[in-house]
Nucleic acid binder design. Sequence first.
RNA 1: UGGGGGAUCGUCUAGUGGUAGGACGUCAGACUCUGGAUCUGACUACCUAGGUUCGAAUCCUAGUCCCCCAGCCA
Length: 566
Amino acid sequence: MTSPEPSSAGNFVREIVAQDLQAGKHGGGVVTRFPPEPNGYLHIGHAKSICLNFGIAREFGGICHLRFDDTNPTKEEVEYVEAIQDDVRWLGFDWGDKMFYASDYFARLYQYAVHLITQGKAYVDSLSADEMRAYRGTLTEPGKASPHRTRSVADNLDLFARMKAGEFPDGTHVLRAKIDMASPNINLRDPVLYRIRHAAHHRTGEQWSLYPTYDYAHPLSDAIEGITHSICTLEFEDHRPLYDWVVEQAGAPCHPRQIEFARLNLTFTVMSKRKLLELVEQGHVAGWDDPRLPTLKGLRRRGYTPEAIRAFCEHIGVAKRDGIVEMALLEHFIREDLNRRALRVMAVLRPIKVVIDNYPEGQVEQLEAVNNPEDPGAGTRLVPFSRILYIEQEDFREVPPPKYFRLTPGREVRLRYAYIVTCVGVVKDPATGEVVEVHCTYDPETRSGGPQAQRKVKSTIHWVSAAHALPAEVRLYEALFSKADPGDVAEGREYTANLNPHSLERLTGCVVEPSLADAPSGSRYQFERQGYFCVDPDRAAGGLVFNRTVPLRDSWVKIEKARQDG
RNA sequence: UGGGGGAUCGUCUAGUGGUAGGACGUCAGACUCUGGAUCUGACUACCUAGGUUCGAAUCCUAGUCCCCCAGCCA
């Protein structure tokens, strides 16, 4: 019997946790944490970490803390703190009352530092940043000791206290761990533990004039909270010896185990906070919630569901090798989710007028349409049909290419849920020659459910009755970048050179069926034969606005593309 | 050229000395009142070279390639 487990079932992090648990380490429990720095918005890479941390805690009957790693007041803001909580909750995770801030521990961290100094394990250095860099050595040459490395414990204690008291300007002194200036691991060449920053902190205000660094605050925050497994990304692997050093030398209450995994990369987008910030600040996108961004806020506005994102995170797995996941996989999961749940409606994005010549003028029929063929419980609705309709421009071709099954002069197609119609002529703009109106006749016997309804036609197209149509704006999104790897640029050029100029297309002349009149902001639909769309919050400003979450898979575009490519 | 990691289908990921599997993707077909969904089938992989072994993705040796580290960022 084979059980189709998700590929992440056996990921190495879970294995380590299970082994530790079996070996009775860490007191036999599991406590993880998701530790964002509140200096930006969460993106789908964070979602991977959130799912991992909360998932492992849940799986092993433990808990996961939400902790803001707010040790750098110059970059952090409450705006981000709030947005992050909102995003984690939206994703579907609950930290109960376990929400913390590294800044909660500033006083204890300070005490630990005093202890370190007393033990001769830390000292105040007064080199400038440039000097310190020079003293650090290089990747291949050892560093050398700062002249202040041998300061007495008493002097260190005094200086450190005065740093705290705010006596010195920024950059004049730091507290460094006394480890090994010749270590082949540069992180161990007396790393900085505290730096002076006369800056207002979003939580502690002006209370502190010195702030701990990540390498110091993180392991101790973990230990203070009783974290058992501190899961982080690969670039912190060389920091692990330092993490362990800090925990041991400070005499922390417990020793969490740091485990590193590969961060998520996705094709056709960027994931670094720096680049995301740039895209927002330079106006390449409209904001952190721009639907083209891989931020959770962006994906949400785009119409992604938390369920789809979680399923994606489960299936990409967790490993140590760095790679790049295809955007197609993310799209697969949102399609899968929405196919199951989204109500179907008819919407015409690029309308062309159709007149049913033999349909009685002024007549309106209410036709029954299925809301979701994947879910009979979703019921049916009535859609009005009349003599003048709109169909999609691309559903009519005066001269059809090979394998084109849609409307074309002399050919029959079915109008979804309505009648089989035959194209009998067109009206052209005398100036441009462009077809502006298509004329058809319908066969009354072929109405859905009618005597001739079973007649085979090559295709079924969607439509909206002109008299009943609701106007709408529709925003079509494509990948933000036109290259799978946005960083793949010519020498001297920036990744922004790969921005896709067609990433957003606004269509303003769209028409949708009347059932959408009261569609609430955020609601999701499948526009039949086209894709999944959701109502944008901008609809509040007046008319209906839809975002395309993802198009339906389309074998016709493949045929066309293959033909064009020759 | 110091240190730390990593190499399995196009992509992600299983495998822990015993038939290299799954998912996405791609291609072909069936079905279809969505060219959707669904269903079939096909596709393609162990970085290289040696060695150990009845048997190696897995163990050993030597290479190769990729990623990370010289912030008072995280």
